[in-house]
């Protein structure tokens, strides 16, 4: 897991609409990167669905929620539509998992990112991190609010 206090590695990935999004686009704002294993998995669906329910309150705290997984942006679009969520989903697709690796979140033997949260502050510095003990568990939304309080 990337260490708190490090400069967050910049990246440019496509979002669910195929548009390029860079971490540096969020300069001056806080962003919570939500690395998750994959679209359409049961736990990922629950995680993003529950986060969606409290997303307005996360945003009230000045934080943008951004999901990242190794899926293609086409899959992201379908997943977003299936769940009825509007969280931005970024495609860490090719080279596969490059960004997850840069944040030391990639699980080589599984081929996807572990379930991790990384709060990047207004200056692009890692302010807080959380890594689930295994991909089958996800941090409840309370953990996000603990980090933001």
């Amino acid at each position: 897991m990337i260490a708190v206090g490090e400069q967050a590695p910049d990246f440019t990935l496509r979002n669910q609409d195929g548009e390029k999004v860079s971490l540096s686009d969020f300069a001056g704002r806080k962003v919570m990167l939500v690395f998750y294993p994959g679209d359409f998995s049961p736990v990922c669906g629950d995680q993003l669905s529950i986060y969606q329910e409290v997303k307005p309150e996360i945003e009230e705290k000045g934080v943008e929620l951004v999901g990242v997984s190794v899926d293609s942006f086409f899959a992201h679009k379908a997943f977003q539509e299936k769940l009825g969520i509007d969280t931005v989903l970024l495609s860490d697709f090719e080279p596969k998992g490059e960004v997850a690796r840069a944040y030391d979140s990639y699980v080589e033997k599984m081929g996807f990112a572990n379930r991790t949260l990384v709060l990047v502050d207004e200056d692009g510095v890692v302010a807080w991190t959380y890594e689930s003990p295994n991909p089958g568990e996800f941090p409840g939304a309370n953990i996000i609010f603990d980090a933001l309080s």
């Binding site: 736990v43 629950d46 995680q47 529950i50 329910e53 568990e137 996800f138 409840g140 309370n142 953990i143």
Partner: peptide, 12 residues
């Protein structure tokens, strides 16, 4: 109820 569940860590 929902909020108390969120605070209690309900994740599914």
């Amino acid at each position: 109820d929902f909020r108390s569940g969120i605070r209690g860590g309900v994740a599914g």
